Amino acid sequence: MNIQEKKIFISQLTAGQQLQDVFLVAKKSLADTRAGKPYLAMTLMDRTGEIEVRVWENAQQYDALIEEGDYALVQAVVKPFRDQLQMTVTSLRKVDETAVDLASFLRTSTRPAAEMHAALDAVIGSITDPALQQLLQTIFQGEVLQKFQRAPAAKKLHHAYIGGLMEHTLSIVGMADKVADHYPLIDRDMLIAGALVHDLAKIEEFDYSKPAFQYTDRGRLVGHLVMGVDIVRRAAGQVPAITDDQLDRLLHMILSHHGQYGFGSPVLPMTPEAILLHYLDDMDAKMQYMESLCVKMDGNSWQWTDYQRHLERYLYLRACGAAQEEGAEQAEDIPDPAASSPAEPVRQPREKSSLAHRQQSLF
């Protein structure tokens, strides 16, 4: 079967552009306008980002034709909408996944994998406690290491690309190493070990074999905090030198690193290393998220973003080069469909409850 070569990426789209190209259907929902006419709301993606799409004609037919996770050959017109671009689709058809180049749709860390692997080895080699070093060497090998090198750190919001988990982890380790020197009460080896394993179970929480990333059944039912404890505890069974106290303190860092009950931690951080890890993790996630917003801005000036629901605020950021093709995942924002089609005003999406809203995080 011939590979359907992708000619244009989302980061290259401009207002008024007419196109026909292949995109991945990341989201899809059928809704009705106020006049009762069905329309199809979709999110399309490639390796450079996402774009909102509306299908006003033959919506039910296309809804039955295409599913989330499918590839589609899309004919559309790009239109501006509230300082963002949307596509109005005139036709689409399903494309077999064997006919697309997966590299066009899977974003990858810009940091070379070999460089990160060498950095990981160096960090583990810097651990002075023999038992903790042996535990980390036992964990980061074989299949676990292979998955760790490929896994994303999140489904969508931060480091959501192949190699993102390793990049995020090493970023936290770098900060942890500096901060440990600043505070004498910190056990540097324990902090570094906790930073290395805090998100490790995301290798099993997500299915990242193809875009768009999804949760595995076990990942959704159990979650990476509990799954991470399982991975570390199994490895600890092969390291007789590790003490119960060391293991408990390390597992506590995994279970508490989200920092709040409302964000999924079953316990609050209660050691200096656990408290510090929580703040470093939160900081790195937010900084990378904001960097991804800067990349998509035009020009080189300070600008206001759309309202960021996960952070409950607008952000004032300086653009850092929207022309970069490998821009990060686009932050979610609810568009006003009525403005995109004045002749056919549509129902606004329902607001989430305040409790659900406040329980969102970047983790």
Rank of each mutant, 00 (worst) to 15 (best):
D281I: 12
E273C: 00
P272H: 04
M270L: 07
E291S: 04
S265L: 09
T271I: 01
P266E: 08
T271M: 08
M270V: 04
D282M: 09
V267P: 14
G264N: 05
S292H: 11
G264E: 06
I275D: 00
P272C: 03
L277C: 06
K286Q: 10
A274R: 01
L276N: 00
S292R: 11
A274M: 03
L280R: 06
Q288T: 10
Y289K: 00
S265E: 12
K286D: 01
M287G: 02
L293M: 15
L277N: 07
A274G: 07
Y279S: 09
L276A: 04
L293W: 08
I275S: 05
M270G: 06
T271L: 10
Q288R: 08
L276T: 04
P266R: 13
E291G: 05
M290G: 01
L276W: 05
V267A: 14
H278D: 09
M290S: 01
H278K: 09
T271A: 11
I275A: 04
A285Q: 10
K286E: 08
L293V: 12
A285K: 15
P266N: 10
Y279N: 10
M290Y: 07
M270F: 05
Y289L: 00
D284A: 11
L277I: 02
H278Q: 11
A274I: 09
K286L: 02
L277V: 01
L293Q: 13
Q288N: 12
M270A: 12
C294G: 03
P272D: 03
L280S: 08
M283S: 11
D284Q: 15
M283E: 07
Y289W: 07
S292K: 07
A274E: 04
E291N: 05
L277G: 04
Y279A: 11
P269W: 01
M283F: 12
E291D: 01
L268D: 13
M270C: 11
D281Q: 10
M290E: 06
E273M: 07
A274Q: 04
P266I: 08
G264S: 03
T271C: 05
I275G: 00
L280M: 15
H278C: 07
L293R: 13
S265D: 12
M270N: 07
D284Y: 09
S292T: 13
M290V: 09
D281S: 14
D281A: 13
Y279M: 14
M290A: 07
C294T: 11
M270E: 10
L268W: 13
E273L: 07
D282L: 11
A274H: 06
M283W: 12
P272R: 00
L268V: 04
L293S: 06
I275V: 04
P269A: 03
G264H: 09
A285S: 15
Y279C: 08
H278V: 10
